[in-house]
Amino acid sequence: MVSPHRNQSSAVVIILLGFSEYPELQVPLFLLFLSIYAVTVMGNVGMIVVIKINPKLQTPMYFFLKHLSLVDFCYSTIVVPKLLGNLVVEDRSVSIKACITQFSFGVTCVMTEMVMLAVMAYDRFVAICYPLLYTVYMSPKHCALLVSVAYSWGIVSSIVLIYSILLLSFCETKIINNFVCEYSVFLSATCSDKHFSEIMLFIFVNLGAFCTLIIILTSYLFIFVTILKMHSASGRYKAFSTCASHLTAVTIFYGTIVFLYCIPNSKNSWLLVKVASVFYLVVIPMLNPLIYSLRNKDVKETFRKIMDLKIIFH
Rank of each mutant, 00 (worst) to 15 (best):
M1V: 06
V2Y: 15
V2E: 14
R6W: 14
R6C: 08
N7V: 03
L16R: 13
P23N: 06
P23Y: 03
L25M: 14
P28H: 12
L29P: 02
L29T: 02
F30L: 13
L31G: 01
F33N: 06
L34I: 05
I36E: 01
M42H: 00
V45P: 05
G46Q: 11
M47E: 00
I48A: 03
V49F: 12
V49Y: 14
K52Y: 13
I53W: 05
P55L: 03
T59D: 12
T59R: 10
F64V: 01
K66W: 12
L68F: 01
L70F: 13
Y75F: 15
V79W: 04
V80R: 00
P81H: 05
K82S: 15
K82R: 15
L84E: 09
D91T: 14
K97D: 12
F103E: 06
G106Q: 03
G106M: 07
T108I: 13
C109M: 14
M111Q: 10
T112K: 05
E113A: 13
V115W: 14
F125K: 08
F125C: 07
V126C: 09
A127F: 14
I128T: 15
V136G: 00
P140G: 05
H142W: 11
C143P: 04
C143D: 10
A144F: 12
L145W: 15
S148N: 12
Y151K: 07
S152P: 06
S152Y: 14
G154P: 09
S157Q: 08
L161H: 05
S164K: 04
L166K: 10
L167Y: 13
T173C: 02
N177V: 01
N177R: 08
V180P: 01
V180H: 06
V180Q: 09
Y183F: 15
S188K: 07
A189M: 05
D193T: 06
F196T: 06
E198I: 06
L201R: 13
V205F: 15
G208H: 11
A209V: 14
F210T: 09
F222I: 10
F222P: 00
I223L: 07
V225M: 10
T226F: 01
I227G: 08
L228N: 14
K229C: 06
A233L: 11
A233P: 00
A239G: 04
A239K: 05
T248R: 05
T251G: 07
F253P: 02
G255P: 05
G255A: 06
G255V: 02
T256E: 09
I257W: 03
F259I: 07
F259S: 13
I263Q: 14
I263W: 03
L271D: 09
K274I: 02
A276S: 14
Y280G: 09
V282H: 06
I284E: 01
P285L: 08
P285R: 02
N288V: 15
Y292C: 07
Y292L: 06
S293R: 00
L294R: 08
R295T: 04
N296S: 12
K297D: 02
F303E: 05
K305C: 00
M307G: 00
K310T: 01
H314Y: 10
H314I: 02
